[in-house]
Design a protein around this nucleic acid. Structure first.
Length: 270
DNA sequence: AATCTTGTCAACCGCGGTAAT
DNA sequence: AATTACCGCGGTTGACAAGAT
C-alpha cells in the first residue's frame, strides 16, 4: 500500500558533514534546484538521507544565511516574539531573514534564557519569578499578579507548548498563531522592562553587538541575495539563478565554510 | 601543564500534519 | 477509506572549544 520508502537507511552516513559532502550538495542544488528531498542524496551522490540533506542546506549551506552573532535589536525582537509565539521557532525565524529556526532556538537556550533568569524573569512566561523558599535553589514559580486568570494563562501556555497539536489548530494566519499569553498592557510593561534591563545589563554588550553587526553587515554585503527567499520545494531553479551563481562564486573562493566560520568567530571576539 | 567545568551549536530524533498510493 | 511515507517542526544530544581551577 502507501508510498514507496524514501531509502533503506542502511549504509547511510551520519554525523558531521565533510567539505566534500557540502560541495556535492551545493553543486547539486545549484544545478538542479530542490524538487524532492528524498531524491537529493541519490542524485547528488551522497550517502545521507534526504532529511539530513534538507537540514544541512537549511541550517548551513543556504546562500541567504546571515551568520555571526545576534545584534541587540535582534535579541530584543526575539524576546518580544517569544512572549507572543512561545517556542514556535520557525515562526520567530520567519521574522529574521537569513536566520534559521535552529540558530534562534540555540541562541535562546544558551544566551537569552539565562539572561532572563539572571534578571528574575521566567523564560517561559516572561514574568518575574517568585521564590518559593529561602533556600536559594531553583525552585521558582511565576508571579501572576494575584490574578487567577493569569495563572490560567500561564498554565495554558505551558501546556500549549507541550502539545504539538495545538500549534496547528491555531490556523495559518500569523495573528492566529500568536498565543495570547499576556495582555496588551502587560506586553507594554514587558517591553519597557526589556528596554530597561537591556540598557543596564552588561556594559560590554553593546559594543560587542556593534562588532557583530559590523561583521554581519560586511558578510551580508558579500553573500546575501536581493531576494532573500531560499530556493525551496517546487520553486524553479531559474528563479534565483543569478543570485545563486553569484553566491556560488563566492563560496568557491572560500577554503571551506568551516574555515570561514572560525575566522568570523575570531574576528567577533577580538 | 593537566584536568575539570561550562558554553556553544551542528546534527539527530521523534512527533504531527499532509500527501501519495 | 486506509495505509504509509514525506516534510517540517521543536526538543534533545554530543562533540568540540574555551575558560577555570
Amino acid at each position: 500500500m502507501g508510498r514507496q520508502p524514501c531509502c533503506d537507511k542502511i549504509g547511510l552516513k551520519r554525523g558531521p558533514w565533510t567539505i566534500e559532502e557540502d560541495h556535492k550538495l551545493m553543486n547539486f542544488i545549484l544545478n538542479n534546484g530542490i524538487h524532492c528531498w528524498r531524491m537529493v542524496p541519490k542524485l547528488a551522490g551522497l550517502l545521507r538521507c534526504g532529511k539530513s540533506c534538507r537540514l544541512r542546506w537549511i541550517n548551513y549551506l543556504r546562500p541567504d544565511l546571515k551568520r555571526g552573532g545576534f545584534t541587540e535589536i535582534e535579541e530584543n525582537e526575539i524576546m518580544q516574539l517569544h512572549s507572543r509565539l512561545g517556542n514556535r521557532w520557525s515562526k520567530i525565524a520567519a521574522h529574521f531573514p537569513g536566520r534559521t529556526d535552529n540558530e534562534i532556538k540555540n541562541h535562546w537556550n544558551t544566551r537569552i534564557k539565562k539572561r532572563l533568569k539572571v534578571l528574575g524573569l521566567d523564560p517561559v512566561t516572561h514574568k518575574p519569578f517568585e521564590k518559593k523558599g529561602s533556600n536559594g535553589d531553583n525552585d521558582e514559580t511565576t508571579v501572576e499578579s494575584n490574578s487567577s486568570k493569569g495563572q490560567e494563562e500561564s498554565v495554558e501556555f505551558k501546556s500549549s507548548m507541550d502539545n504539538h497539536a495545538r500549534r496547528d489548530s491555531l490556523g495559518t494566519e500569523e495573528k492566529g498563531d500568536e498565543v495570547e499569553l499576556i495582555t496588551m498592557d502587560e506586553t507594554n510593561d514587558l517591553l519597557n522592562n526589556y528596554d530597561g534591563w537591556w540598557g543596564s545589563l552588561d556594559l560590554g554588550y553593546s559594543w560587542m553587538n556593534q562588532e557583530a553587526n559590523t561583521i554581519n553587515t560586511s558578510y551580508s554585503s558579500s553573500f546575501s541575495l536581493e531576494n532573500s527567499s531560499n530556493p525551496s520545494m517546487g520553486e524553479s531553479p531559474s528563479l534565483q539563478e543569478d543570485s545563486i551563481q553569484q553566491w556560488a562564486g563566492s563560496v568557491d573562493s572560500m577554503l571551506s565554510w568551516d574555515g570561514f566560520n572560525h575566522l568570523e568567530q575570531d574576528l567577533f571576539f577580538l
